[in-house]
Design a protein around this nucleic acid. Structure first.
Length: 569
RNA sequence: GGCGAGGUAGCUCAGCUGGUUAGAGCGCACGACUCAUAAUCGUGAGGUCGAGAGUUCAAGUCUCUCCCUCGCCA
């Protein structure tokens, strides 16, 4: 039994995430976690909301709430949305909770002890009417190069030149529009990443288990040269810059930058889990306290790779403490909306909570896994969604369950029938299954989710092929016992179909296994002898057809949804 | 503008370190079957692998140029 620590990139607190976010980290992490649990491993799947930073403050202000209240509400909304998709976190924590605050302050203190943190004075734009320092991109004004009137403080969108906020002519606050700005001096802590470049590069060199996408992004950053990075901000909402409970002098109104404390949230949320369950968090994170046998797997979108392969490692490696670092890293490309970007403002795309209003979580889980943006960006379209759901879930899997259970009910009184002999058709089924089962497990293990889903689908389809060969409906007329072996094998086969479906569509799989009376402790990943699998159900056991597993998506649904959420043109 | 990803059958995508007639699923056509959510099973038709040039005995797979799409720019 292996110990596997799984984290998915932390969703930012600012609003419910869209399907692309779900598909690119939380869902595949969950599928992987479920697969590994079914395979008998000790899995700890941790996630949390990333709550600090300016966007959270502004979103709260827009709703006329204090930040804490806003985050409380949003955290709850995201937790519920995750539950709607069956995301099986062992713990869904918060970066604003005490464990993360303490850990963040701890890392900062240790890094400073190692000489990797330095106080530097910067010049930043302060908005008197907003009563706050403005992050670069919240200062706008006229570009000194091209005259574009809405250039951002970090760069001009029109001519593309990099800017400093102080370069802008006629600057104004993007938050309030106020022109009542001034440049003030402000001190910040800087993490001296330049000193750690060699150490990080050596660590990247030594890493295996990363896909090429991840390595190339890490090297790109290293090749460009790391920069010392400010890790504090002039904000109220965040981890206070303090040590042992005492605020740092001159930093009373400052907090750590969200990008510094967010990844530490993986550890923080693990501590929350330990506090809540009475478990030990250090045995998962400290190699001096039992974590040396842990395999740590991270899931994230490609935009997050640099932070996980360079920035966060800088924090961890810089501490020189025996923290666990990532072993395997799975990075995803984008799920696009008809080839373009998901966009709230332009009403393009579906968000996690909205999708659940349309259909249950399993529908989305299947589509987003079978069509995961693994090798390249992958397009969501309603038409494609409809096609995959109807074919794979309703026709191939759902109909199989329905056809065989109903036939069994009308011909064999709804119990696993006796009679008939294992024959050539059953041998054929067993050998096909054995090969495909092995492939499916390999793909799940390798985190190749499209291929895993494809193999699962192939195994489902194999059931229908078997029925075509066995044709119990024909045999029943002349020899009911010849039909019985076909039905019995088909019922046993259905248990395998459902068991391997569990990582991807857990709810539907549970419905099927319940209908077949499979005990909870027999629902692990099928790994025994294939013939044993196909003869496991006790003769005479009652099996009841469940309600229709998956309803089909009609053309009228697609029309209505395209209208509401955007679609082709 | 810089950087990144990508342009492979009608659609969504596989194609590792170059090597027999370029693959899958969906869609489509035809056939079979009737237990089933008009479901299922079988067969088949579809591609000058964005364009051009080059390296090589051999390129979707390497090099260069160009065109186009998407994203990021902390």
């Amino acid at each position: 039994m292996a110990r596997i620590l799984i984290t998915s990139a932390l969703p930012y607190i600012n609003g419910v995430k869209h399907l692309g976010n779900l598909a690119g980290s939380m869902l595949p992490a969950d599928v992987y976690a479920r697969f590994q649990r079914l395979s008998g491993h000790d899995v700890l799947y941790i996630c949390a909301t990333d709550e600090h930073g300016t966007p959270a403050e502004l979103a709260a202000a827009a709703e006329d709430k204090d930040v804490r209240t806003y985050c409380d509400e949003q955290h709850d909304i995201q937790r519920q949305a995750g539950a709607g998709y069956g995301l099986s976190y062992d713990y869904f924590g918060r970066t604003s909770n005490t464990p993360n605050i303490e850990l963040t302050q701890h890392f900062a203190a240790v890094l400073e002890d190692k000489g990797l943190i330095e106080e530097r004075v910067e010049h930043q734009v302060f908005s008197i009417d907003d009563d706050r320092f403005l992050p670069d991109r919240y200062v706008e004004g006229t570009c000194p190069h091209c005259g574009f009137e809405r250039a951002r403080g970090d760069q001009c969108d029109n001519c593309g030149r990099l800017l400093e906020p102080t370069d802008l002519k006629e600057p104004y606050s993007k938050i309030s529009g106020s022109k009542n700005l001034e440049v003030r001096e402000t001190a910040h802590l800087h993490l001296l990443q330049t000193k750690m470049e060699d150490k990080i590069r050596a660590w990247v060199d030594a890493s295996d288990g990363w896909p090429s996408l991840a390595k190339s992004i890490a090297y790109k950053w290293l090749d460009e040269g790391l920069r010392d990075r400010s890790i504090t901000r002039d904000l109220k909402w965040g981890v206070p810059v303090a040590k042992d409970g005492t605020p740092r002098e001159g930093f009373e109104s400052k907090v750590f930058y969200v990008w510094f404390d967010a990844p530490i949230g993986y550890v923080g949320a693990t501590r929350e889990w330990a506090d809540a369950t009475g478990n030990d968090w250090e045995s998962w994170w400290r190699t001096d306290k039992g974590a040396e046998d842990v395999t740590y797997v991270q899931f994230m979108g490609k935009d997050n790779v640099a932070f996980h392969t360079v920035s966060f490692p800088a924090t961890i490696l810089g501490s020189e403490e025996p923290w666990k670092t990532v072993d395997k890293l799975k990075a995803f490309n984008w799920l696009t909306w008809y080839g373009g970007k998901f966009s709230t403002s332009e009403k393009r795309g579906v968000f996690m909570d909205q999708a659940l209003d349309l259909l249950p979580g399993d529908y989305w889980r299947w589509y987003l896994t079978a069509n995961a943006p693994e090798g390249s960006d992958s397009a969501f379209t309603w038409e494609h969604f409809q096609s995959l759901i109807n074919t794979d879930l309703a026709n191939v899997l759902g109909n199989y369950v329905n056809r065989i259970l109903r036939f069994n009910k009308s011909r064999f009184d709804g119990v696993v029938p006796e009679g008939g002999e294992w024959g050539a058709d059953e041998d054929w089924l067993a050998s096909e299954l054995e090969a495909r089962l092995k492939d499916a497990a390999t793909h799940f293990e390798a985190m190749e989710f499209r291929k895993a889903a494809g193999e699962v689908r192939a195994i489902w389809a194999l059931g229908n092929e078997y029925l075509t060969r066995a044709e119990p409906w024909t045999k029943f007329k002349a020899d009911p016992s010849a039909a019985a072996i076909g039905v019995r094998t088909a019922l046993n086969y259905m248990t395998v179909m459902a068991k391997i479906a569990q990582p991807i569509i857990p709810d539907a799989a549970k419905t099927i296994l319940d209908a077949l009376g499979v005990a909870d402790d027999e629902r692990t990943w099928p790994a025994c002898d294939v013939r044993e699998m196909l003869t496991a159900l006790p003769l005479g056991q009652a099996v009841e057809p469940p309600e229709v597993l998956f309803k089909k998506i009609e053309d009228t649904d697609v029309e209505a949804w395209s209208e509401r959420f955007g679609g082709a043109e």
